[in-house]
């Protein structure tokens, strides 16, 4: 107990103890003369250290002027950072370009599909749409069982297949856009962390 308290005397002297630990040391000091003496001696050491006078130094103005003569023209790391920063700023531009490309592709596909289904393009582009709006899996199942599937089963399979086709189409349309958007937000988050966020993170971690 006594040794534990002795180890805390410096922290007590420096005002670094709080709460129950502070009370514990204060209570111990009222009853322990040895610790009171030690605290007094530690305080004397601290006072004597701080009482040591300082000599004359070069004035700040002259020191700064002398230092300016020795400074390299620019911080070396700033020069190194200039290269990557261009690449860094190209990232959102590239993502926007990718998004524009995906949008154009989807738009063209939709227009072509509508034109095909409306018969506006005749037979010249029939290779694009295929012969039927059925998935490979559905065609495989039908071939496997020949024509032996019941009508109800065929209808259910057909409905499921259409749902799968709808899902695929949805994924094709939205998947790439979602990826691009996600990458863009990721870039924004990293940018924020690099510029302002790092100052707040330690505070959040301490909170």
């Amino acid at each position: 107990m006594h040794e534990d308290m002795r180890a805390l005397l410096n922290a007590y002297l420096d005002g670094e103890l709080h709460g129950w630990r502070l009370l514990e040391v204060q209570n111990h000091l009222t009853s322990c003369e040895s610790c009171r003496n030690e605290l007094r001696e530690l305080r004397a050491v601290s006072d004597l250290l701080r009482a040591a006078p300082l000599p004359e130094f070069t004035p700040a103005e002259r020191f700064a002027a002398n230092l300016a003569l020795r400074l390299p023209r620019r911080p070396l790391k700033a020069q190194l950072q200039r290269g990557p920063s261009l690449t860094w700023w190209l990232a959102p531009l590239a993502l926007m370009g990718l998004w524009f490309f995906v949008q154009t592709l989807i738009w063209l596909t939709t227009v072509l599909s509508l034109a095909l289904s409306g018969g506006l393009l005749g037979e010249s582009f029939s290779w694009i749409s295929g012969s039927a709006a059925q998935s490979n899996l559905f065609a495989f199942l039908m071939n496997l069982f020949g024509g032996h599937l019941g009508t109800a089963t065929q209808s259910t399979l057909s409905l499921l297949d259409r749902l799968v086709l709808f899902g695929n189409s949805l994924i094709n349309q939205w998947f790439w856009q979602a990826i691009v958007a996600l990458l863009y937000w990721l870039w924004m988050a990293v940018w924020w962390l690099r510029t302002r966020g790092r100052a707040f993170l330690p505070r959040l971690a301490r909170a």
Binding site: F63, L67, L71, P72, K77, Q81, R196, R198, A199
Partner: peptide, 22 residues
């Protein structure tokens, strides 16, 4: 002390771009 201070500020100048301003 002045040599060390000068060296410290030179190092600070070189490493300043990696310092978080806040």
């Amino acid at each position: 002390a002045e040599d060390a201070a000068q060296e410290a500020f030179l190092r600070a100048w070189i490493n300043l771009p990696s310092f978080e301003p806040r």
